[in-house]
């Protein structure tokens, strides 16, 4: 499969193949992430979009080889520049330094009992190896980069003394501390005011361009994807159901779930008539049907959909869909 932007400047950084994360429950093992395949190239902004419980956040951590107990990685591989991230020795090197994560709720994702300065200091000292006055200089520089005024004063502040947007900026500063090549942003704007959301997104966008970082944006918000990403993957029940360049996803969605998602978003630039939701509810993950997970809610479902989950197949250049009703490229 090819995931390059086609302009030749990209280098493949992250390659996730068939990654599966299982959580034991009373009703058997629930797959939070199921045979996930995903690639991120350099200078790329990839979006992963899906509703709550679709396994997006589990995916973000699993890429770093982290799963909260009692879950565990059941199969698949994660490679960073060809090295196996699921190997703890490699993970120890890659985490933070090569791939840094930004989390949803900056209130609880910053240590409540450490000042901003001490959280930056421990990263710069222990993960980057800076010493002495260089630490403070770099801390101020980082806060400046994320647009925090009065940086010197903010170093002494605790998370609870900062506003939501400010906390997320600090979070981004800690992510940038080790100059990562890829940032995984897990719902970085959820829970912030709308104006602050835009500021944070713009900040991430600018930083990724300036510093040449790739971003993997995990979100439930198609607006965020439209504003931010070059390419998007739609996730449903732990599996990727569609993958497309950003424009094509919005002009020509293929998977019935993607269609439903787009129709449930109000658009001001076009008159589509009434908004329609997706019928039904997200599945109870313990009671997965053996076939396509979206089949119970799908208005195009046929008998064949219930037998086995549809594979993600290429239907056109840079277009992939997992649906029996969308013929793969080359097949009749």
């Amino acid at each position: 499969m090819s995931t390059t932007n086609g302009d030749g400047r990209t280098e493949r950084l992250l390659e996730v193949k068939d990654l599966t994360v299982g959580f034991p429950t009373r009703d058997g093992i629930v797959r939070g992430v199921d045979q996930l395949t995903l690639n991120v190239g350099s200078h790329e902004r990839l979006g992963v979009v899906g509703e709550s419980g679709s396994g997006k956040s589990v995916m973000g951590l699993a890429i770093l080889g982290m799963v909260l107990p009692p879950g565990r990685i059941m199969g698949g591989s994660v490679r960073w520049r060809g090295e196996d991230v699921l190997d703890p020795a490699v993970a120890g090197r890659v985490r933070g330094r090569e791939i840094a994560m930004i989390f949803q709720d900056p209130m609880v994702s910053l240590n409540p009992l450490k000042t901003v300065g001490s959280q930056l200091r421990e990263l710069l000292k222990r993960r980057v190896g800076l010493q002495g006055p260089a630490i403070r200089r770099r801390s101020l520089e980082l806060l400046d980069m994320v647009g925090i005024a009065n940086a010197g004063e903010r170093l002494r502040a605790y998370a609870y003394e900062l506003s939501g947007g400010m906390r997320q900026r600090v979070m981004i500063a800690t992510a940038l501390a080790c100059e990562p090549t890829l940032v995984i942003a897990d719902e970085p704007t959820t829970g912030l005011d709308v104006t602050i959301q835009d500021q944070i997104l713009a900040l991430l966008h600018d930083l990724s361009t300036e510093l040449g970082m790739s971003v993997l944006m995990i979100t439930h918000d198609l607006g965020v994807v439209a504003q931010f990403c070059d390419r998007v993957q739609v996730m449903y029940a732990g599996r990727i159901v569609e993958r497309a360049p950003i424009n094509e996803m919005f002009t020509d969605p293929q998977h019935p779930y993607s269609l439903g998602l787009l129709h449930s978003v109000p658009r001001v630039d076009r008159d589509d008539g009434e908004l329609t939701g997706i019928p039904g509810e997200p599945l109870d993950r313990a009671q997965f049907p053996p076939g396509c997970a979206f089949e119970p809610r799908c208005n195009e479902a046929q008998d064949g959909c219930r037998d086995a989950p549809p594979p993600l197949l290429k239907i056109a250049e840079r277009r992939w869909v997992a649906c029996y009703n969308r013929p793969a490229a080359g097949s009749p």
Partner: peptide, 18 residues
């Protein structure tokens, strides 16, 4: 250890013991 700030610390590459 299950709280987001600890997960964040681990994701930054700090060891479990640290």
């Amino acid at each position: 250890l299950r709280k987001p700030y600890a997960v964040t610390a681990l994701s930054r590459g700090f060891s479990r013991s640290y």
